[in-house]
């Protein structure tokens, strides 16, 4: 088990915040167990933003949920390991997982409107995090714990740039706009000073202008609170804006991982190339979209060999026969593609 990522960075000596290796997850669909994640690996160092990209259904969200031990009832881990600060997450008891979720890993989800409880005030939903982490309230001074939790909840809202936090804290979610709601969820994540924040398509449900505001908030928080972020998105533009490194997933597998600059300059995997071309460019005054032709295969009936080969412009006979191995091409770059098998050392 091994991961290319371990060789990849200069920071390889430090214990990574998150290290996933060979994670396989199966889903029960119609009474059959279907492989949904196939030996996924990725690593995040402290203070790093890792972009996890791929189309819907590529397994990004399943990866995220696995980290927090929140896989749905019809999913099971079939193998691999997830280490958080060097400690194995898989196989932990529900109680231990609750401890982990309460303090170490925080999730922010796609649609804030459906992820906030409609009948509890914003403040109640933030302050309850302190019930699980009383140590965060130590500097209470003369205040009671309740009041201190409330005060810190207001501070958290201020941190995510919510105007008039003293009033918003008393509001119910439905009284806020989508952008404000997402800021509230981000505040919930930050308030426990987590080791890792997982942001799963957090701007997808928002208006374009609000998306931009949320993204600039994240960029700011990176500097101010030194966020360690797993940024899940299908939008290469967001990756370019925020991520240090990027992992590209397709149909349950990692097809390429690299630092952002290198990937954008010279993508190797045909799927990465295609993804980058989906970012619209302005060409001679005309906006050009290049969609990826075809659709992702159904998990229930995946193609043989490389799962991308039916859509791949560079596919040759090897591709439909054998699953490509992961190859470490240059330092810090791993690609799973038959095109490069001649020129690189297989892992």
């Amino acid at each position: 088990m091994t991961s290319a990522t371990r060789r990849s960075g200069a920071a390889a000596t430090a214990v990574p915040v998150l290290e996933i290796s060979d994670l396989s997850v199966e889903l029960s669909i119609g009474g059959r167990w279907i492989q949904a994640l196939d030996r996924v690996g990725l690593t995040i160092q402290r203070g790093e933003v890792l972009g996890l990209v791929g189309e819907s259904g590529s397994g990004k969200s399943l990866t995220a949920l696995s980290i927090a031990g929140l896989l749905p009832g019809n999913a099971r881990v079939a193998g691999g390991s997830i280490r958080l600060n060097g400690e194995e997450v898989l196989g932990k008891s529900e109680q231990a997982l609750n401890r982990l979720r309460a303090r170490s890993v925080a999730l922010v989800f796609q649609n804030p409107t459906s992820y906030l409880n409609p009948v509890l005030t914003v403040g109640a939903q933030i302050a309850e995090i302190f019930e699980l982490n009383p140590e965060l309230l130590e500097a209470a001074g003369g205040r009671t714990r309740r009041r201190e939790a409330w005060r810190q909840s207001i501070e958290a809202l201020r941190l995510v740039r919510i105007p008039d936090p003293e009033r918003v804290v008393e509001r119910y979610p439905f009284e806020l706009s989508g952008g404000m709601q997402q800021r509230v969820v981000i505040a919930m994540a930050l308030v426990r000073q987590p080791d890792l924040v997982i942001a799963d398509e957090i701007t997808t449900a928002l208006d374009v202008t609000v998306q931009a505001q949320i993204l600039s908030l994240l960029a700011e928080l990176r500097r101010t609170v030194r966020l360690t972020l797993l940024l899940i998105t299908h939008d290469m533009g967001i990756v370019a804006q925020l991520a240090d490194r990027v992992v590209v997933m397709y149909s349950g597998s990692v097809v390429e991982s690299s630092d952002v600059r290198t990937l954008f300059k010279s993508p190797r995997h045909p799927y990465s190339k295609a993804l980058l071309e989906t970012v619209p460019t302005i060409d001679g005054g005309r906006t050009v979209f290049r969609p990826i032709r075809g659709a992702m295969p159904a998990l229930t009936d995946p193609p043989a060999g490389c799962r991308f080969h039916p859509r791949c412009p560079d596919a040759f006979d090897q591709c439909s026969r054998r699953k490509p191995e992961r190859l470490a091409l240059d330092p810090g770059r791993v690609v799973a593609c038959h095109l490069y098998e001649g020129g690189a050392v297989s892992e």
């Binding site: 927090a68 929140l70 997982l97 609750n98 401890r99 982990l100 979720r101 309460a102 303090r103 925080a106 999730l107 989800f109 649609n111 459906s114 992820y115 906030l116 409880n117 409609p118 509890l120 309850e128 995090i129 699980l132 969820v185 919930m188």
Partner: peptide
Amino acid sequence: RQDYILLARSKGLPTRTIVMRH
């Protein structure tokens, strides 16, 4: 089955609190 229950679980709240409060 609602999303806000998943968010509540992701906060590490025990089942009892999730059921009674959320």
